[in-house]
């Protein structure tokens, strides 16, 4: 295949340069992950899996991340839809705010959540009067995850809804379909694969959340010690625990990615 229509010598050079670039990028990304697997023996890995701290971190992470994902999708999808379809005062401000958690350092997000919802926080003090407390609870973990991870889904959903040819929704309306029905039967199925990839990114970000969690939710095994926190603490004391959980996180991430690819391939085949 002639690339760029260059003369043969130039072509070879281009191929070599491209090859080096691709190799460099691939190795830079892949090697650290592979190194994890080589630093611990399989026996040690399986033995550490039984460690109660590992098990509780795993359950806690899975539980909180799935709840976060569910909330983001259930609340975020209609929000993104109405945000796109209607012009309301302050729409530009909301647009910018959705992007904010992406550039905000997670620790800052954590501090913000703490001074707002903490026991003596701006809002938290009123909740506290009713005995409702957020900081240092599993709910705090979920709140932190939602804060940092929701922009991934919201931006994706926004973009998809904006780019969807309006004629489909318009036709549905002329046929008598209400807004909600149109959203459910027309808009969502047509944007499904894009929404799923947004959900996957949200899941990944929520699973890996650290800075805001440790600041707002604290670090208590079984309650707020998610896998990333357990890795951090582990690497300072029990390195095997740190490595084992790191490997678990890699496996989970890969499993999600592969599942989504398979689902997408199947959907393409069906179409």
């Amino acid at each position: 295949m002639s690339f760029f229509n260059l003369r043969p010598k130039r072509q070879t050079l281009t191929y070599i340069a491209a090859g080096i670039l691709i190799a460099a990028v691939t190795l830079y990304l892949a090697l650290p992950i592979l190194a994890l697997f080589f630093r611990i023996t399989p026996e040690m890995f399986f033995a550490t899996l039984a460690d109660p701290d590992v098990i509780s971190a795993l359950w806690l992470s899975m539980f909180t991340t799935f709840v976060t994902l569910a909330i983001v999708i259930i609340v975020g999808t209609p929000f993104a839809y109405y945000h796109c379809r209607y012009n309301y005062p302050g729409k530009i401000v909301v647009d910018t705010l959705i992007d904010l958690p992406l550039v905000l350092p997670p620790a800052v997000a954590g501090v913000g959540l703490l001074v707002l919802y903490g026991r003596v926080g701006l809002l938290g003090r009123y909740f506290n009067m009713f005995g409702i407390q957020f900081a240092f609870t599993t709910l705090a973990v979920i709140m932190a995850q939602i804060f940092v991870a929701s922009p991934f889904y919201l931006r994706q959903a926004k973009s998809l809804f904006e780019q969807l040819d309006p004629s489909y929704e318009q036709t549905a309306r002329t046929l008598g379909s209400s807004s909600m029905r149109t959203l459910a039967l027309v808009t969502l199925p047509m944007t499904a694969s894009g929404l799923i990839s947004g959900a996957v990114m949200t899941f990944g970000r929520a699973l890996g959340e650290f800075g805001a969690t440790i600041m707002f939710a604290g670090n208590l095994p079984g309650v707020t010690q998610t896998m990333p926190l357990a890795v951090y603490v582990g690497m300072q004391g029990n390195v095997n625990v740190g490595l084992t959980i790191s490997i678990l996180l890699v496996i989970i991430s890969f499993a999600i990615m592969i599942t989504v690819r398979i689902l997408q391939k199947r959907e393409e085949k069906r179409a």
Partner: peptide, 26 residues
């Protein structure tokens, strides 16, 4: 939604993810 006007757009806007039967029944 309530005007009972049939409107066929230029690109026909059939819902590509639904079967023909489901489209007509929509």
């Amino acid at each position: 939604e309530e005007r009972r006007i049939g409107y066929v757009l230029q690109n026909s806007a059939v819902f590509p993810h639904m079967q023909v039967r489901e489209n007509v029944a929509f």
